[in-house]
Design a protein around this nucleic acid. Structure first.
Length: 556
DNA sequence: GTACCGGTGCG
DNA sequence: CGCACC
DNA sequence: GTAC
């Protein structure tokens, strides 16, 4: 039954922090006496934020939860984060200081307020006289973290392929809602302004992130997911830095960068390489004394096997131990599942990236095919009802090439989606568009589960034979917004949204937003609790109190 | 010392 | 169940 | 490998 109506989340940021003033060994003193801070929480780990607030208050500063005239200092992780929180207009008349958090860190470290010069985010009076050296450098960062592909380190077989064509400015923005025949957006409608900003991925420090990227793969191949994940988290942190790292001191206090990574960074900036990585790449044995016995292995082979769709670290290792050494060997292996066989057969194809243009063509093809399977309400009625087919994933985020296609489907009438996928897949096979199946699951018919139907498979661009990975997801209209968000990503954003939801007492996933029922409610069978009803992406963002991001702004 | 991102299909 | 995937 |  109707779960308690959720009260809208409070807009307040975390309130004044527990003032349990910590002892603080030496008289921290009133370093920040008289200063009034507004902290932009975007892109800051909550824990970190909390610590900073605490410090500021300890040292007699004041922290405001809202941006106001009283504020003398704004601190932000980046200019982008800043603008998400404070609009440019209100910033212009602002006379105080706008600084990077690093200013605070340095000040805390040295025990005195360091010069604001180097940390200013202020864009001078606007218009003509641009800021001095202040910062144009900061303007574009965090934008193009070229975590090219899509998602987590887990998935997507970490193909480190180049998509470095930067971001295509021509972001097809589609609509966030359900497309209706006559082109009106019957839902997602959000701000339609298509701001094609001048992207310019900063990417100083590529020297470091590239090496860390390799370590991610290596550790994953060794089954050390945790460690791998640590590097994964560190990369975006480093990427966002507005300067090129030349000394370890500059990264000493960054989150996710601890002792070891500092050492690594030190070695990289001084010698240009990382001996640890060299070892991994050349020797192939030795390191991991404790694993040595088990893995008398070449990391490469395991890595390679693991790149086959359907084969993960465990299976890759098994296959290696069975004596296989090449992909060709695997073809004779009986134990492979159907999916793995398909993944193996089209190994090279699947790795190829798809040009944006082609994805767009295929999106149209898919939309058309959808309408053929499920003809919409004709007639003149303005409210035509038509199946909606949107390509999410990196495509929707505006990337120039895509590793695969994530198709999110729904129907405005709220019922016609049922049973649609099966017919749709059949039709697409008749069109010779879908070529091989990987996974096919349907729930909409039984009404069990949340009613999402899913298909994973391979498709081809009309007239060609190259296989591309494609996912089709059919959502009931009422939870469509959640599916669209989840499948548009990126994963960093998804996780941030989830965490925010949790902090507000909810659980968020691609099938909805639920009151965090504690423990009891099993989720099998018909869900006991229904998702809160939010019709558009915008509504979800708003509900969570997260600043709206256009799809192409979601490459966090 | 220990947790770290979560949920689902397949075999 | 464990493995793989998103 | 990092943070609690």
């Amino acid at each position: 039954m109707a779960p308690k109506r959720a009260t809208t989340p409070k807009k307040r940021l975390t309130s004044a922090v527990d003032q349990e003033s910590v002892g603080d060994g030496g008289g921290g003193g009133g370093l920040f006496h008289g200063l009034i801070f507004f902290l932009v929480d975007i892109g800051v780990q909550p824990r970190r934020l909390q610590i900073w607030k605490q410090k500021l208050v300890q040292m007699e500063g004041t922290v405001e939860d809202q941006f106001s005239k009283r504020v003398t200092h704004i601190l932000a992780m980046s200019s982008k984060a800043l603008l998400e929180k404070v609009c440019k207009e209100s910033l212009m008349p602002f006379k105080g200081s706008v600084l990077l958090y690093q200013w605070l860190e340095e000040s805390l470290k040295l025990g005195e307020k360091v010069s604001e010069e180097l940390y200013s985010l202020k864009t001078e009076a606007e218009g003509d006289n641009e800021s001095p050296k202040s910062i144009d450098r900061v303007r574009n960062k965090s934008e193009g973290s070229q975590s090219d592909d899509n998602e987590s380190p887990r998935d997507k077989k970490a193909r480190h392929s180049p998509e470095h064509a930067s971001v295509s400015p021509a972001v097809s923005n589609e609509s966030h809602g359900v497309k209706t025949r006559d082109g009106t957006n019957n839902s997602g409608g959000d701000s339609n302004k298509d701001v094609s900003l001048p992207y310019a991925p900063p990417d100083l420090n590529r020297n470091i992130t590239e090496i860390f990227g390799k370590l991610i793969n290596i550790y994953r191949a060794l089954g050390e997911d945790r460690r791998s994940f640590s590097y994964y988290k560190a990369i975006p942190v480093i990427e966002k830095l507005p300067f090129k790292i030349e000394s370890v001191d500059q990264v000493k206090h960054l989150p996710t960068i601890g002792k070891s990574m500092q050492d690594h960074i030190h070695e990289i900036v001084t010698t240009g390489k990382l001996s640890k990585l060299e070892h991994f790449e050349t020797d192939e044995k030795v390191f991991y004394r404790f694993l040595e016995e088990l893995f008398t292995v070449t990391v490469r082979t395991i890595n390679l096997f693991g790149e086959v769709w359907g084969i993960g670290p465990a299976t890759a290792l098994k296959l290696y131990e069975k004596g296989h050494r090449t992909l060709n060997d695997l073809k004779n292996e009986d134990s492979l599942t159907h999916s793995q066989r398909v993944g193996l057969e089209y190994f090279e194809d699947i790795k190829k990236r798809i040009p944006r243009k082609e994805v767009q063509d295929m999106e149209h093809l898919l939309q058309k095919a959808g309408e053929e399977v499920l003809p919409g309400v004709r007639d003149n009625c303005s409210d035509a009802s038509q199946v909606s087919v949107v390509c999410g994933g990196s495509f929707r985020r505006g990337k120039a090439t895509c590793g695969d296609m994530d198709i999110v489907i729904t129907h405005p009438d709220g019922t016609s989606h049922k049973g649609f996928l099966a017919k749709y897949v059949k039709h697409l096979k008749d069109l010779n568009f879908l070529r091989e199946d990987l996974i096919f699951s349907t729930h909409s018919l039984e009404g069990t589960d949340s009613g999402v139907d899913t298909y994973f498979g391979l498709c081809t661009y009309p007239g060609r034979e190259t296989r591309h990975r494609i996912d089709l997801k059919v959502y009931p209209r009422d939870i469509y917004a959640f599916g669209l968000i989840a499948w548009t990503g990126n994963d960093v954003l998804n996780r941030r949204l989830r965490i925010i939801a949790e902090s507000k007492g909810y659980r968020l996933d691609d099938t909805g937003l639920f009151l965090a029922t504690h423990g009891s409610d099993g989720k099998k069978g018909a869900r006991a609790t229904k998702s809160l009803s939010l019709n558009t992406e915008k509504e979800v963002f708003d509900f969570l109190g997260f600043p709206w991001l256009e799809p192409h702004e979601r490459n966090l």
